[in-house]
Simulated assay, not measured.
Amino acid sequence: MTTVSEATDSTVTAQRRELGVFLRSRRERIRPDEVGFAPGGRRRTPGLRREEVALLAGVGVTWYTWLEQGRDINVSTQVLDAIATALRFDRQERNHLYRLAGIRFGPTQSVCSALPPSVQKTLDAVSPYPAVVLNERYDMLAFNEAYCKVIIDLNQVPVEERNLLWAHFVSDAWQCSMVDDEKAKHHMVAAFRSASAEHLGDALWQDLIHGLLSNSPYFAELWERYDVDSPSTRTKLLDVDGFGLLRIEPINLWLSQLGPLRATVYTALDDETEVKLRKIVEAPTRPACRAARTLD
């Protein structure tokens, strides 16, 4: 039987290994001339060398090498800040670095496994706007009838497959929102990668990741980019059979009292879409949704 101590050690080891891979992926993206180094000379790997990152960050080469190798060494926020600056991290990448290094700011929120009835009442009340509750893993925990009519009929999807990433990258049932939206898929994987830093020892997270990697070459391609981001929304244009184009503007409502959960509500961007949404929800059957594109 695995003890708590063994499970904790395993998680820490996984975080250190992920930290090394993340740092390596980022230094390989920076051209030497971008940070003041001569571009000439033979280089076995693209981007910066470890000693160049160490020089820019003001740390020892051996220490930085150990950090990339996932060794058990102490790191401070000051040193992490220096490395993040050297590698030109943005805010999301810097926060991801902190998570992998085990540095937390504020209390860790717990995820509520059972939603109170008030959440479902709220989702039903915003109809005809489609609405769904998601956790950090993109599990679809609750939804309203409008979501089933406009986006995907989750009543026809097995509970174990009600995951937005699985729907986008694997499931045949997903026929609507963001199917052909490469930017949206890229963003979802980056946000998922960022959130996964705090769940490296969680079997549910690892099972989902392995399942996506095994069943979707495109997810695997995006996953290997090691991009990180936070959940956000962009205006979408849906093409629904019998109703034409719908201009949708999603908004995220964070359910802070329940942990890192959010309700995504797909609001109408104009009066015409408002009317169409009401007609779709009132229709006896779900219309087909041909495609969805994101508006820049």
Rank of each mutant, 00 (worst) to 15 (best):
M1N: 09
M1I: 13
T2Y: 15
T3N: 02
S10R: 13
T13H: 11
A14G: 15
R17H: 14
F22D: 03
L23P: 05
R24V: 06
S25P: 06
S25N: 07
E28H: 14
E28D: 11
I30P: 00
I30D: 00
D33H: 06
G36Y: 03
G36S: 05
A38T: 01
P39I: 04
G40K: 01
R42V: 12
R42H: 13
R44K: 12
R50W: 14
E51H: 15
T62Y: 09
Y64C: 00
W66C: 07
W66P: 07
W66G: 01
Q69A: 05
N74T: 15
Q78L: 12
V79P: 01
D81S: 15
D81G: 12
E93C: 01
R99P: 07
L100W: 07
L100Q: 08
G102D: 06
G102I: 08
G102H: 12
I103G: 11
R104N: 08
P117Q: 11
L123I: 05
P128D: 01
V132F: 07
N135G: 01
A142Q: 04
E145T: 13
V150S: 04
Q156Y: 13
L165D: 02
S171N: 15
M188C: 07
F192W: 10
R193A: 04
E198G: 15
D207F: 08
L208P: 06
I209G: 13
L212H: 04
E221I: 04
W223M: 02
E224C: 04
E224K: 09
V228W: 03
V228S: 06
V228H: 11
K236W: 15
V240D: 11
L245C: 11
L245E: 11
L246C: 04
I248E: 03
E249G: 02
G259T: 00
L269V: 13
K276M: 09
L277Q: 03
R286G: 06
A288V: 13
